[in-house]
Amino acid sequence: MSHNKRRSFLVASAAGLGTVALGVAVAPGIRLIEVSHANPVRPAGQPASSAVRWGMLVDTTRCATGCDDCVKACAAENGINETVADKRQGAQWIRKIDIKEAKTGRQHSLPMMCQHCANPPCVDVCPTGASMKRADGIVLVDRHVCIGCRYCMMACPYKARSFVHQPLSGQNPEVPRGLGCVESCTLCVHRVDKGQQPACVESCTTAGHNALLFGDLNDPNSEISRRAAAAATSQIRADLKLNTGVRYQGI
């Protein structure tokens, strides 16, 4: 028992040291994606492949309370810039949640967004098929057929989806969004398809927090798979057996 514990501690600290070393090695100005090649660029005309399952690993031990670099990066990347009179009607693709265990008082801060489930309830309930899962596991809303019924928002266990309550302008050309449709984190699908990482992950890494890791969960040699194999990770509301693509470490 204690032997096991010691070993897992050693593994974890080694992994931690490794990551810190990597963080140090990356000089300012050089983007991590250029170093890691986390995801190859798909050739033009090729559909997304089910051989890949995009996922994210959130290390809550590195995620600081009050830090919202990922939220800001998401808003900038996805053009979430509208002013909303009633904040409850505003869209939030990613948000920081502070959690505290009621009994022990242990606290964490973590980002919460679409968990990109393998069995997404939003896709099950959508009457028109607008809610969909791409072959590589990214859950999206096809706004061309979304009628704005909000049933997916009722079904989502993570409150990951937002309804656009007002007319919009000033969208990012690569991220169309508009009135009357439901939307949520796309895992920055437009960046991923270009071989880049999601904006939140990039900003977290660039700022040196290294709390977010993006990669292919199906590839056993990817960094995310190796980290998930080495340390204990969990899925939020694992009891629902949704098989989420976003995993959390340290809670």
Binding site: V123, D124, V125, C126, P127, T128, G129, A130, V145, C146, I147, G148, C149, R150, Y151, F163, V164, L179, G180, C181, V182
Partner: peptide
Amino acid sequence: LGRADRLIIAATHYNFTSVFAWNV
């Protein structure tokens, strides 16, 4: 509906796992 103008989509696109679509 957020996009009531797309009512025709509700009639032409069915997702058969959706209870809502069954109800339509």
